[in-house]
């Protein structure tokens, strides 16, 4: 196998990795906010469910969660899981990362002083307006550092997709390395993750700078 064919095979894996990454963020960033808000629900039952969800997600390995999402329907209901691999994978990632983002959002929301809510209330803002116009923009600024950490972790965590034998860049590197008895694929994968995270850090620091206009 020439270096070129290896790279072209692996580039398909890189695209798939980017796909997992993007879909996970698209799903978990908003879902995390929903979870964070439900955690402050008036209803004790809702809060209870959310707390159980967050502690189960944080207390078990993502790898195990992915296996449960994929094989669960078969073992529990005898369902046919053909074609279920990719949806299970994305579901597993989204549900996992939503829990972590929810905790980040919650910390951010709780760090905004009550006086901001009161100022908004006296000015007549509705609850939704207060959250969307006054609270959320300040939350976004405050959580940028911890959100950056989480996104960088996600780039690396995409490699857990190998658990479900989904052929993203890490699975492919493992396969090619075994069949070609070469170390090269791992090096390529390593460089890929590093560059991807470099890009993430760059993008996040640009956003942070853009939010630097106020304190």
């Amino acid at each position: 196998m020439t270096l070129q064919t290896m790279l072209s095979t692996m580039s398909i894996g890189m695209l798939r990795t980017c796909g997992i990454f993007a879909l996970t963020l698209i799903g978990s960033l908003p879902l995390g906010m929903v979870v964070a808000l439900l955690k402050k629900s008036r209803f004790a039952v809702v809060r209870g469910i959310i707390n159980v969800y967050i502690s189960v997600i944080r207390g078990t390995p993502l790898m195990l969660q992915l296996l449960v999402w994929y094989f669960g329907p078969f073992y529990l209901f005898g369902a046919n899981i053909g074609g279920w691999r990719f949806p299970a994978l994305i579901l597993g990632f989204v549900v996992n990362y939503a829990a972590y983002f929810a905790e980040i959002y919650r910390g951010g929301i709780e760090s905004i002083p009550v006086s901001q809510y009161e100022a908004a209330q006296v000015l007549g803002y509705s609850k939704v307006q207060t959250f969307m116009r006054i609270i959320l923009p300040q939350v976004v600024k405050r959580i940028m550092p911890s959100a950056t950490n989480e996104v960088i972790t996600l780039v690396k965590d995409t490699s857990l997709a190998f658990t479900l034998a989904y052929q993203e860049v890490f699975s492919l590197a493992k396969q090619i390395s075994a069949s070609q008895t070469s170390f090269m694929p791992f090096l390529v994968a390593g460089i890929f993750y590093f560059v991807a995270n470099y890009g993430v850090e760059f993008a996040m620091s640009r956003i942070e700078k853009a939010l630097d206009y106020y304190r």
Binding site: Q116, A119, A120, L123, Y125, Q129, R133, I134
Partner: peptide, 24 residues
């Protein structure tokens, strides 16, 4: 308020116009 409680992410002008526009 004693502590002003301005909206830090809004310019001074926007602090004064946001509620009139979006509330009223």
């Amino acid at each position: 308020f004693q502590q002003f409680n301005l909206f830090p992410h809004y310019s001074i002008l926007k602090n004064l116009t946001d509620a009139p526009i979006h509330v009223q």
